[in-house]
């Protein structure tokens, strides 16, 4: 899926995360900041990258500000950000779970 505009999802509140996604020409860059980065950084990044891969997002700049969110919240926020950043969004729920 092609990211055509900058988009946001989520909040900075505890147990949530703010995801910012923007078009990028060369590849997928993911920047993660988390209060629990030492313990869970690699895991959160994997959840986010899996989500992006399943949505077929290969070119994007993704910046995540994590506030200790559960995996399912990370997935929901990444998917929402993508859905807001693409031209046409038809959810394939089986690919989102």
């Amino acid at each position: 899926m092609k990211i055509v505009r900058e988009a946001l999802a989520g909040t900075l509140e505890s147990s949530d995360l703010l995801v910012r996604i923007a078009p990028l020409e060369d590849g997928l860059e993911l920047v993660l900041k988390s209060e629990v980065i030492h313990q869970f950084g690699p895991h959160i990044e994997k959840v986010a990258r899996d989500c992006l891969a399943r949505l077929g997002v290969t070119q994007a700049l993704v910046v995540i500000e994590d506030k200790g969110a559960l995996d399912c919240v990370v997935a929901a926020r990444v998917q929402t950000a993508v859905s807001r950043a693409v031209d046409e969004w038809t959810p394939d729920w089986s690919a989102l779970s």
Partner: peptide, 14 residues
Amino acid sequence: GECISLKVVSEMIH
């Protein structure tokens, strides 16, 4: 309270 300030800033960013 943290929750107010974080909500205000989140809302402002949106």
